[in-house]
């Protein structure tokens, strides 16, 4: 393992928090954003950990394609300096039980009992609770402690699941007013509210439906809707992924009628380029409207054509953290 640089270059706000949660509609590229950010954090001398909650880790597939790398419950160094783990119910459960009975041997006896294991797999909320326990533990370790991670980048499932997760403390309110579960939930609530430690980023695409859903999610997180969450998690950036570039400059656009007249054979090409331009303008309009409705620092990421990989994601991460947040003028349609 390469030696860690003595000096680390800080990450700009709002990407400077220890625990960073990412959510967005399925298919918006959350995993790519998280992987890119981890690459850039590692380049700056941090020790990032990507936490996935799904059935199977997808980070190794995009960061180290072609390498048959199994990422499980224990953090694995996927590429130099970037660690990843995938929550597994059985392991997280064993951790949780160990914390309660304080004897790993006894905890193992419980999790290895077929009957109890099936019970825990089928019982509601067990998965969520033990996941939360593991996350809390990762965040509790002092950032400077040996083997600890920072930042901890959590790829939450699609929006619905993320909301449920954030709502866990409330769900158990009144149901567990004391005891180990209460302690855990109180700790998690505190972590969620802690502006110095935690931040939730929203990831979107410049398309109508995902943008609409991002706005709805924002309102829910702000508690502005009937079904809004009560947990006030600090919000970070609005990251819009795969924003296309305008194919033509305004000057080129103005010349199109002249070209069409001079070379009728090129009408199809002209039409195609106009369409591509319209599509790009449309995407930029969606971004602009979304940015007005979701007043968070905005980061735009380019559309990545072709295969992903460590290099492409490193560029994505550098771009994410590189410039100042994009302001409205730069998004405006050129006259």
């Amino acid at each position: 393992m390469p030696a860690r640089p003595v000096l680390t270059e800080p990450l700009p706000a709002p990407f400077d928090r220890r625990v960073q949660l990412f959510t967005g509609k399925g298919g918006v590229g959350k995993t790519s954003v998280v992987a890119g950010l981890a690459m850039e954090a590692a380049r700056r001398g941090h020790r990032p950990l990507i936490v996935e909650l799904g059935h199977r880790a997808s980070v190794p597939g995009i960061l180290a394609p072609g390498r048959a790398l199994e990422v499980g419950y224990a953090p694995v160094e996927v590429v130099p300096g970037v660690f990843a783990m995938n929550m597994s119910l059985d392991d997280a459960l064993e951790d949780y039980i160990t914390a309660q009975v304080r004897v790993r041997r006894a905890a193992r006896a419980i999790t290895q009992s077929q009957a109890l294991r099936r019970f825990f797999h089928a019982a509601p909320a067990v998965n969520e609770v033990v996941t939360l326990h593991r996350l809390s533990r990762l965040a509790e370790a002092a950032p400077s402690a040996r083997g600890s991670f920072s930042p901890i980048l959590v790829d939450l499932d699609a929006t619905g699941h993320a909301l449920m997760f954030l709502e866990l403390p409330r769900v158990f309110e009144g149901l567990a007013s004391s005891g180990p579960l209460r302690t855990l939930l109180d700790g998690f609530s505190k972590l969620l509210r802690d502006e110095d430690t935690t931040v939730l980023h929203l990831v979107a695409l410049p398309l109508e439906l995902p943008a609409q859903e991002t706005h709805e999610l924002y309102e829910q997180l702000r508690g502005n809707t009937a079904t809004g969450v009560t947990a006030r998690v600090p919000l970070g950036a609005l990251i819009v992924n795969a924003v296309p570039d305008r194919p033509l400059t305004p000057e080129e656009l103005a010349l199109l009628p002249e070209l069409e007249a001079a070379a009728p054979a090129l009408r199809a090409d002209v039409a195609l380029a106009r369409g591509a331009q319209a599509a790009a303008e449309d995407a930029l309009r969606v971004v602009r409207e979304l940015a007005q409705r979701v007043p968070l620092p905005l980061r735009r990421l380019p559309r990545c054509e072709g295969a992903l990989g460590a290099d492409a994601l490193a560029r994505l991460g550098a771009r994410l953290l590189g410039g100042a947040p994009v302001n409205d003028e730069r998004l405006g349609v050129s006259a």
Binding site: E208, A271, R274, G275, A279, D282
Partner: peptide
């Protein structure tokens, strides 16, 4: 001519 715009990836006509 407007129809042409719709043949393009991702174009949405308001």
């Amino acid at each position: 001519a407007a129809a042409a715009l719709h043949a393009v990836r991702g174009a949405a006509d308001r």
